[in-house]
Design a binder for these strands. Structure first.
Length: 507
RNA sequence: GGGCCAUUAGCUCAGUCGGUAGAGCACCUGACUUUUAAUCAGGGUGUCGCUGGUUCGAGUCCAGCAUGGCUCACCA
């Protein structure tokens, strides 16, 4: 292997690059070509390049462009040399187009350069549009410029990059060789834009609230901790923007929303990434019924706008997103599916006994309350069955510390969650605006915390302070953007809709 | 964190009973002036994830570790 290293040293191209790297044959050859080009006065990393057309535009507008000059740029994705003429495909953001170089047309210097080009190199091409004998729309090269020399070989041309670990770790390669991946992220962008358009059109104001918080509130989750050096204090990455957005309602904003990242220090799975994107919106003088209506309209209209249909296929299951969606109170859903009538159960002790007798296979803890037991039954036996969009309403107060109690039953709240394909897609409620009740809820959460529940809410005195000034009654809604994008792009894993999902570092 | 599975060339993958490393693409050399997974002739480019162990001999068997996937737990 000694001789290989010596060659590598020679092959590194720049005069001031004396690094001896352990390069394989493929990379060594590319560096040699780089050095050779520099030696002939050709700069392999070009600058500004003005294009007149995109690949797709040329392919879709052949009649108008036949024999017309075009200037395009992109990455070489395939190459076929035939002696004194050569073909290649170049790819830009819109797709691929074939290019054709003929020795007689371009001259020896350019043809030689064309021959030296590798798959992966980025080039600019000036030429005219024609159709080959086989009928493929092609740009006949007149001038050629190397814009970026690629030093690493791309994955194979028809299997592409399959190794999921490499795909996530080196998303840039995934995007180059797997067009479907780029399409997913284009759709994601369209979905988010459609959300904003919808809300802006209804008079909502987009705002930004702190990502770094002194008290991480608004959800039950373990936060990430970080440190501010100058202040010498620990801060938490937010688990939700909720309490800040509601402070804005106190301040007088009446319709606000935020689409941004939340961070939760919990497990990673096909449905969980430590950072994920949430839409939260708040509307003063509205309630959770208004939130159900807006959820239906938002999701169905975004699907119609981005996908052109409200009837989608997710992992082989047909899902109909057209309104209206079922609205079922949790008590009723539990009664239907388990036969247990919680309206007759008044205490935690009764609930414990009844659930054990029913042999539902649900594990309970001594600390479980009537409401948390009800929720466990729901999550265990009903949630997975909610394939078509379904609102489950009226959640127990114990697991809803920020939601308004139902007027008819103070043990329940004016809250719903939306389920599609057995997954929670949205969570919303009539916001609790009674500062005294809110303080009581925080106090009982703080007790849970003391008892070891790391996910229980923390007391937030400033939030209580805000409520004491008076918050208008309001409806609030949260939608998990990543999960919605998964649904609308038929993606199996959340990692397929997040450009750079968190991966454990190598080594 | 538990269980199961995977890790071999740049990529996609074979590798039998433990006997000293294979294919396709890519790449290199040559031929070819409208090709289409271009074709034809020739060339194998490797720390078999890592560390130990068993063995005359380990890609293969055993143990530990690492990374990833699935799954359960936790969550959105």
């Amino acid at each position: 292997m000694g001789h290989k290293q010596k060659e590598t040293e020679i092959a590194t191209g720049g005069e001031n690059n004396n690094l001896v790297e352990d390069l394989n044959e493929l990379m060594r050859v590319r560096r040699e070509k780089l050095g050779e080009m520099r030696g002939r006065g050709l700069e392999p990393y070009g600058g500004r390049f003005e294009r007149t057309h995109s690949a797709r535009f040329i392919v879709e507008n052949y009649l108008a462009l036949e024999n017309k000059p075009v200037t395009i740029a992109g990455r070489i994705m395939s190459k076929r040399g035939m002696g004194k003429a050569s073909f290649a495909h170049i790819q830009d953001a819109t797709g691929q187009v074939q290019i054709y170089a003929r020795l007689n047309d371009v001259g020896e210097a350019t043809y030689d350069l064309f021959g030296k080009l590798d798959i992966g190199d980025i080039i600019g091409v000036e030429g005219s549009v024609f159709k080959t004998r086989m009928g493929e729309i092609t740009v006949a090269v007149a001038k050629l410029r190397l814009l970026s020399k690629s030093l690493r070989p791309l994955p194979e041309k028809w299997h592409g990059l399959r190794d999921v670990e490499l795909r996530y770790r080196q998303r840039y390669v995934d995007l180059i060789v797997n067009p479907a991946v780029m399409a997913v992220f284009e759709t994601r962008s369209k979905i988010v834009r459609a959300f904003r358009n919808f809300l802006d059109g209804r008079g909502f104001l987009e705002v930004e609230t702190p990502m770094m918080q002194v008290i991480p509130g608004g959800a039950a989750a373990r936060p990430f901790i970080t440190h501010h050096n100058a202040l010498d204090i620990n801060l938490y990455m937010r688990i939700a923007p909720e309490l800040y957005l509601k402070r804005l309602l106190v301040g007088g904003f009446e319709k606000v929303y935020e689409i941004n990242r939340n961070f939760r220090n919990e497990g990673i799975s096909t449905k969980h990434n430590p950072e994920f994107t949430m839409l939260e919106l708040y509307e003063a003088y509205a309630d959770y019924n208004d939130m159900m209506n807006i959820t239906e309209e938002l999701i169905s209209s975004v699907a119609a706008e981005v996908l052109g249909t409200t009837s989608i296929d997710y992992q082989g299951t047909k899902i109909n997103l057209a309104p209206k969606w079922d609205r079922i109170p949790m008590l009723e859903a539990v009664k239907q599916h388990s036969g247990l009538d919680f309206s007759l159960i008044k205490t935690a002790a009764e609930a414990q006994t009844v659930v054990k007798q029913a042999r539902l296979g649900i594990e309970l803890e001594a600390s479980d309350t009537r409401g948390s037991i009800l929720n466990k039954i729901f999550e265990e036996i009903i949630e997975p069955k909610l394939i078509q969009p379904t609102f489950i309403t009226d959640y127990p107060v114990e697991i809803s510390p920020l939601a308004k109690r139902k007027a008819e039953d103070p043990e329940l709240t004016d809250r719903f969650e939306l389920f599609i394909y057995g997954r929670e897609m949205a969570n919303a409620f009539s916001e609790l605006n009674d500062p005294i009740d809110q303080r009581g809820r925080f106090v009982s959460q703080a007790e849970k915390r003391r008892a070891g529940d790391e996910e229980a809410h923390m007391m937030d005195e400033d939030y209580i302070n805000a409520l004491e000034y008076g918050m208008p009654p309001a409806g609030g809604l949260g939608i998990g953007i990543d999960r919605l994008v998964m649904l609308l792009t038929n993606s199996y894993s959340i990692r397929d809709v997040i450009l750079f999902p968190l991966m454990k570092p190598r080594d």
